[in-house]
Design a binder for these strands. Structure first.
Lengths: 409, 409
DNA sequence: AGTCTAATTTTAAGTACCGAAATAAGTCTG
DNA sequence: CAGACTTATTTCGGTACTTAAAATTAGACT
């Protein structure tokens, strides 16, 4: 039984949050329009908005012409109220971006990791240094940073002490936030799985906009998914939900790097696709230097090579079945296909992928789902990470830097 | 953007709901204890509880001895405040049960369907007649029925007009609630998929108690699952989430009755198991009259027949992989295995099933999950259906028969 | 009977939202 | 260009709800 009381202050917080969120996603809007959309009385809207203006969270932004009658004053979230930082910790480097509250990018920094294996003890100071560089321009100060979101390539146990588990880079229970804090960063920190931050970015600004139930399917070298249930990221009991890549799709099939057999990832992950391609070529290596160009080679070869076409056909079939599993289990409105390999496949083969999905999904659920491609670029992980502090601001309706409103004077 | 305002009345409703739910699941409790657990002030608890006592929703139930000091008065939900009915619409018959608010069964009725294909036009009057029979004893009246929950073997589109789609019995968009109302039933109606009601019953009173994230995996002739995410049943965008049975487990494998190939159901559904057994026996039929006894025969034969043992081994492997998929995707605290076939398999083979699951799931997620058997009997669907009106009562904190509190006098 | 302890209820104060009335800020008309 | 008109926003008075503190109750203990 997880029951929590609610007080009259919670009420205020919630309405504040409602109004602020609406302004963020659908602004600019007038007070009048806010009242109409939220159902709050004009009096309350005016009152709450006035408070947020006093706090510098919201600003007036021009008028709407009227045909007689007082013109509506437009309101918007104050872009200059603070900045947010998004960090993408990858296997080979760290990239960071600075945004204002309208999510306009103000600066970006990229740092390679030498050697390319991010030792936490190395990554934390790198983030601190990157932050300093991002704030290099005049007029930017750490005190104005509402928060720093960090996307990492592994599962993140949220809780008292945030811990990062990332097999692929050898992190086991790394308290990343604490390390970054020890490196001298004082702004609030938010750590989350990179696939989830990328998913959130697509939901806020990309192909997921407007959906309440969606799955963001990410295919790169590996395979993962972010599930959005009823508007929020589904975490599961220990934040490791969405491990789509290691669901069994072909029982007893190919060995996967996770040690199991027949995982989806072993068939549709870039590594799996290329491995199958290599085998189909009789063991000859694909004549390109890295995975991405190898996949491009495969896609380009499909027109003239029956071998390549067959490998892709199979891939589409496996992927369709894998997506159909998501459709059957989650019954989402939308599936968003992303990741560099997912995008490469989807750009050329989306109709075929849709058809393969339809063949494996239950009709009813399939008909309710649209399958789209990701819309954001390669910095989606960082953008999504930067939304974490914004999300905190929107749901709390209050600046994390000063959690409690100051007492009245 | 789905933002809703909140007023001071919502606040009251919510606190009322919190207190009532706590009394229902953890009662009896004293006012003092309620305050301590919810965080509400003693004054508010006293006030709200007083109101609920006036409404007849809560009653005092004895004292707790004290060692000096005023003794605490225990409170509980008033079992006699009303009754609820749970209906299990199956493929061969309808069974109905009547409970008081402490979920004590007061009466039960069973009606076979002749012929065993529930035509909606036939089922609705049957329910009406069954209700009359349930209320046959003196002291029971329809006016006291808080609501009737109906579990049906198909997906239920909730909404303005509730519609039932059940391929297996040929229902397509049946407005069951309206039909039952037309048959003369006046109590509030709640229609839901039977697997979901059964899942809810396990969550409230069975193996799922206390879990916030769980999956109830049901294996009968077919295969389905109920996903509990953060304490509530996950519905998806059109209420058809949880179609575990038709997820692809063995790509390109056995033909399933859904038309696709390699569905989990084709391997671990009773029909699929027995079909594989028959094939393994060289086509000879299993010498038993119905599916249940055939499955028992198979389980009993495993000790002496290598053929039977191999079929079961395979089944355990498939089932383990299927459960592992649930573990990887949903990261639940608990998996509850049920359904008549699931129970039959689990009773004998649970350790093996756990092992097979471990072999296919990611270590981290698997370690967070316990796999248990259902605890409720064959009336779980009806019990779960009966919880629907109770749930409405608990979350609204107000009797559905009189939605608005009467104005003060 | 009087004292002590601890639960519950009453009281007074603070905060929140709402509806109605008042005010503000434009456009339109003559 | 003043006055009429229209519509957005603010102000005001009222009611609902929670809380902290004070008062009351109900037994136990002496």
């Amino acid at each position: 039984m997880e029951a929590r009381r609610a007080t009259v202050r919670d009420l205020r917080r919630r309405n504040r949050s409602t109004l602020l969120s609406m302004l963020f996603f659908e602004g600019p809007l007038s007070r009048y329009e806010l009242g109409r959309r939220t159902g709050l009385s004009a009096a309350t809207v005016s009152n709450v908005v006035g408070e947020m203006i006093d706090d510098g969270l919201v600003v007036e932004a021009g008028l709407v012409d009227s045909d007689g009658g007082r013109p509506r004053v437009l309101l918007r979230v104050n872009p200059a109220h603070g900045t947010v930082v998004g960090v993408d910790v990858g296997e080979t480097g760290v990239s960071m971006e600075l945004f204002d509250l309208s999510m306009t990018r103000l600066a970006a920094v990229e740092r390679a990791l030498e050697p390319p294996q991010p030792d936490p003890a190395l990554v934390a100071p790198l983030i601190a240094a990157g932050l300093a560089e991002l704030l290099g321009k005049p007029g930017l100060a750490e005190a104005d940073v509402l928060g720093i979101g960090i996307g990492v390539p592994g599962t993140v146990e949220q809780g008292e002490r945030v811990r990062v588990h990332a097999q692929s880079i050898g992190w086991d229970g790394v308290p990343l936030a604490e390390l970054v804090r020890d490196a001298g960063v004082t702004a609030p920190l938010y750590v989350e799985n990179g696939a989830k931050t990328q998913g959130q970015a697509e939901m806020w600004f990309g192909a997921g906009r407007g959906a309440r139930h969606a799955v963001i399917a990410l295919i790169g070298s590996g395979v993962g998914a972010t599930v959005i249930a009823d508007g929020t990221t589904y975490q599961g009991s220990t934040s490791s939900a969405g491990e789509w890549g290691h669901t069994t799709l072909a029982y007893g099939g190919r060995l996967c790097r996770c040690g199991s057999h027949g995982c989806l990832e072993a068939y549709v992950g870039a590594e799996g696709i290329l491995d199958r391609f290599r085998k189909a070529r009789g063991g000859r290596a694909v004549p390109r230097p890295d995975e991405r160009s190898q996949l491009d080679f495969l896609l380009a070869a499909a027109d003239r090579s029956a071998t390549a076409a067959a490998v892709l056909d199979d891939t589409v079939g496996f992927l369709g079945a894998g997506i159909a599993n998501l459709v059957n289990l989650f019954n989402p409105e939308r599936i968003v296909l992303g990741g560099w390999a997912g995008l490469a496949l989807g750009t050329r083969l989306l109709p075929e992928i849709r058809k393969a999905t339809a063949a494996h999904a239950l009709r009813h659920a399939y008909e309710q789902t649209s399958i789209e491609l990701c819309q954001l670029g390669s910095d989606a992980v960082a953008v999504g990470a930067a939304t974490l502090p914004v999300e905190a601001l929107l749901t709390q309706g209050v600046d994390a830097r000063r959690p409690a409103r100051p007492a009245m004077t």
